[in-house]
Deep mutational scan, measured.
Amino acid sequence: MDVFMKGLSKAKEGVVAAAEKTKQGVAEAAGKTKEGVLYVGSKTKEGVVHGVATVAEKTKEQVTNVGGAVVTGVTAVAQKTVEGAGSIAAATGFVKKDQLGKNEEGAPQEGILEDMPVDPDNEAYEMPSEEGYQDYEPEA
């Protein structure tokens, strides 16, 4: 019985440690998101679009440190934060509304985080759909 109880105690310690790591990862992701939003706020009209992409990228980098179902929630929060940063930029006159959601080359930025393969159960990952990809044929 002692062996059984000791095993359960060790398992509990492992769960607590994993929860603490997840909590730490979420806190880091939130900190990076805040950094990115402050970065966007300090940019001029020309830099705002690039700044919004930076927020998304920093958040995406930190999301990889967070495991399990938390990833889905962090990704949703990050996307809403990026959308909010863009709205703030438009409201303050840093950028025109028609410039939001495009990178410096004018290509749409939507789907940055949505296409990231995420499995809350950590069982399997699927690649994003290939609808947006084109076949590449090298020139002879």
Rank of each mutant, 00 (worst) to 15 (best):
M1Q: 00
D2C: 12
V3I: 09
M5R: 05
K6F: 11
K6E: 03
K6W: 09
G7C: 11
L8E: 00
L8P: 00
S9H: 12
S9I: 11
S9N: 13
A11F: 13
A11M: 12
A11W: 15
K12N: 01
K12Y: 11
E13T: 04
E13I: 02
G14C: 11
G14S: 14
G14Q: 06
G14P: 02
V15T: 02
V15L: 11
V15S: 03
V15C: 06
V16G: 04
V16S: 06
A17R: 08
A17N: 08
A19W: 10
E20G: 05
E20S: 05
E20N: 12
K21H: 03
K21Y: 12
K23P: 00
K23V: 07
K23L: 02
K23E: 01
K23H: 03
Q24I: 15
Q24S: 09
Q24Y: 13
Q24E: 07
G25C: 12
V26K: 00
V26S: 01
A27I: 14
A27C: 11
A27V: 06
A27P: 00
E28S: 14
E28Y: 03
E28W: 05
E28R: 15
A29I: 14
A29N: 01
A29G: 03
A30Q: 03
A30V: 04
A30R: 03
G31Y: 05
G31C: 01
K32L: 09
K32Y: 10
K32H: 13
K32R: 12
T33P: 00
T33H: 01
T33V: 11
K34S: 02
E35Y: 10
E35R: 08
G36F: 06
V37H: 00
V37C: 05
V37T: 01
L38H: 14
L38Q: 10
Y39M: 06
Y39A: 05
Y39F: 13
Y39T: 06
Y39P: 00
Y39S: 09
V40D: 00
V40I: 09
V40F: 03
V40R: 02
G41E: 01
G41Q: 06
G41W: 09
S42D: 03
S42E: 14
K43P: 00
K43L: 05
T44R: 01
K45D: 00
K45I: 10
E46R: 14
E46H: 14
G47C: 09
G47V: 05
G47T: 11
V48E: 00
V48H: 00
V48L: 10
V48C: 07
V49W: 05
V49Y: 09
V49A: 11
V49C: 09
V49T: 03
V49E: 03
V49Q: 07
V49F: 10
V49P: 02
H50D: 11
H50T: 08
H50N: 03
G51C: 08
G51T: 08
V52P: 02
V52N: 00
V52Q: 00
T54D: 01
T54R: 15
V55E: 00
V55C: 09
A56M: 13
A56E: 01
A56V: 07
A56Q: 03
K58V: 08
T59P: 00
T59D: 00
T59M: 01
T59H: 00
K60R: 07
K60Q: 08
K60G: 03
K60I: 13
K60H: 04
Q62V: 07
V63D: 00
V63R: 01
T64V: 08
T64C: 15
T64W: 08
N65P: 03
V66D: 01
V66A: 07
G67N: 05
G67E: 03
G68F: 04
G68P: 03
G68D: 02
G68L: 08
V70P: 01
V70A: 04
V70T: 04
V71C: 05
V71K: 12
V71T: 02
V71E: 02
T72H: 14
T72V: 04
T72R: 13
G73M: 13
V74F: 07
V74G: 02
V74K: 01
V74H: 01
V74P: 01
A76N: 07
V77K: 01
V77I: 15
V77A: 13
A78T: 15
Q79K: 15
Q79H: 13
Q79Y: 10
K80T: 03
K80V: 08
K80A: 07
T81R: 03
T81S: 10
T81V: 11
V82T: 07
V82Q: 11
V82E: 02
V82P: 01
E83C: 06
G84F: 11
G84E: 10
G84S: 14
A85W: 12
A85Q: 02
A85H: 04
A85I: 13
S87V: 12
S87E: 11
S87T: 11
I88G: 03
I88W: 09
A89Q: 05
A89E: 02
A91H: 12
T92N: 04
F94W: 12
F94H: 15
V95G: 13
V95D: 03
V95S: 11
V95P: 07
K96R: 07
K96C: 06
K96F: 13
D98H: 12
D98N: 15
D98Q: 08
Q99P: 01
N103M: 10
E104C: 05
E104I: 02
E105I: 01
E105L: 09
G106H: 06
A107H: 13
A107L: 11
P108T: 14
P108C: 11
P108Q: 10
P108I: 06
P108H: 12
Q109W: 15
Q109T: 08
E110Y: 08
E110F: 08
E110Q: 13
E110I: 05
G111M: 02
I112D: 04
L113E: 11
L113T: 09
E114P: 07
E114I: 09
E114C: 12
D115Q: 09
D115K: 15
D115T: 11
D115E: 11
M116E: 08
M116H: 14
P117V: 10
P117R: 03
V118D: 12
V118T: 06
V118Q: 02
V118H: 11
D119T: 03
P120G: 08
P120Y: 06
P120A: 13
D121E: 11
D121Y: 08
N122D: 12
N122T: 07
N122Q: 10
E123R: 08
A124N: 01
A124K: 15
A124H: 04
A124C: 07
Y125P: 04
Y125T: 09
E126Y: 10
E126V: 11
E126L: 06
M127K: 13
M127R: 10
P128H: 03
P128V: 03
S129T: 11
S129C: 07
E130F: 03
E130D: 11
E130A: 08
E130G: 11
E131T: 09
E131C: 10
G132W: 06
G132Q: 08
Y133A: 13
Y133M: 09
Y133I: 01
Y133T: 05
Q134V: 05
D135T: 09
Y136R: 04
Y136W: 13
Y136I: 12
E137F: 12
P138G: 13
P138M: 06
E139P: 06
E139C: 03
A140M: 08
A140I: 07
A140R: 10
